[in-house]
């Protein structure tokens, strides 16, 4: 028999401190900020007059993706001022997600609760502040008492709207990012452990070639995680844009 002992979930998330209070998650978060800054810094240093290529082309295509793919689709032309915020949100989340498949890092920083909680609370604060800034106290009215509902139904609608707008939104933003990345990490660990255990099967040598199967699955899942990393960053950003746009202009 092979001995496959899957570690408890909290053990595959444990990293020792590189120096006090600074562990791998913090390292990845700092690296994400530094790499993002470097990309846009180097891109900004290039000559803007000639046709963009290399890193400037890359940075400009990210900017245009945020502008055309996210801002224009959800907030319209008025929301273009939010591009830097959404751009930094997208780049930071993507750069925190993608270490999940980079060898030796092998851990998405967003698979720990700290980053998603912080980011979604930030988004929560930002969209509420935006709502009050654009509509004043009318924001409460437009978000809790949606127009076009019979008066008697407000008893039912208002608590639901309150919960869904002010409680479920940050919660679901957090859980979506966190759980997707953690699930991907656990999947990779599972198939990595499985193929390792099969390759090292003592007792039954016939099992050793079978270990190729979970290895293929591991490779496939690694490619899939690239997609997930991008998609989660995109979804977090576009939901942020939708929330901010909804707070700024209630009619949308």
């Amino acid at each position: 028999m092979i001995a496959l002992e899957f570690p408890p979930i909290n053990e595959i998330l444990r990293w020792k401190d590189l120096f006090p209070t600074f562990n791998k998650i913090a390292l990845i978060a700092v690296l994400a900020a530094v790499i993002g800054t470097l990309i846009f810094l180097l891109a900004g240093n290039k000559d803007a007059k000639v046709a963009p290529k290399g890193i400037r082309n890359f940075a400009e295509s990210i900017v245009e993706f945020i502008e055309n793919g996210i801002v224009m689709q959800t907030m319209g032309r008025d929301g273009l001022g939010w591009t830097p915020f959404l751009l930094s949100l997208f780049s930071f989340i993507y750069l925190c997600n993608v270490p999940g498949i980079i060898p030796f890092l092998q851990m998405p920083a967003t698979a720990r609760m700290a980053l998603p909680v912080f980011l979604s609370l930030l988004v929560w604060v930002v969209f509420i502040v935006t709502g009050f800034k654009h509509q004043g106290l009318g924001y409460i009215k437009s978000s809790l008492f949606p127009p076009g509902v019979p008066k008697a139904l407000y008893i039912l609608v208002t608590p639901i709207e309150f919960i869904s707008t002010f409680l479920v939104r940050p919660f679901s933003l957090t859980v979506r990012l966190f759980a997707n990345m953690l699930a991907g990490h656990i999947l990779l660990v599972t198939f990595g452990l499985l193929s390792e255990a099969l390759f090292q099967a003592k007792g039954n040598p016939a099992l050793i070639p079978v270990g190729v199967l979970p290895l293929f699955m591991l490779i496939f899942l690694t490619g899939f995680e690239v997609l997930v990393a991008f998609l989660q960053a995109y979804i977090f950003t576009i939901l942020t844009a939708v929330y901010i746009g909804g707070a700024a202009h209630p009619e949308h």
Binding site: S172, V175, R176, A179, L231, Y234, I235, I238, L239
Partner: peptide
């Protein structure tokens, strides 16, 4: 994508 994000939230919870 928005709809997937909302639907998927249940599975993630």
């Amino acid at each position: 994508f928005l709809g997937i994000a909302f639907t998927e939230a249940l599975a993630l919870i």
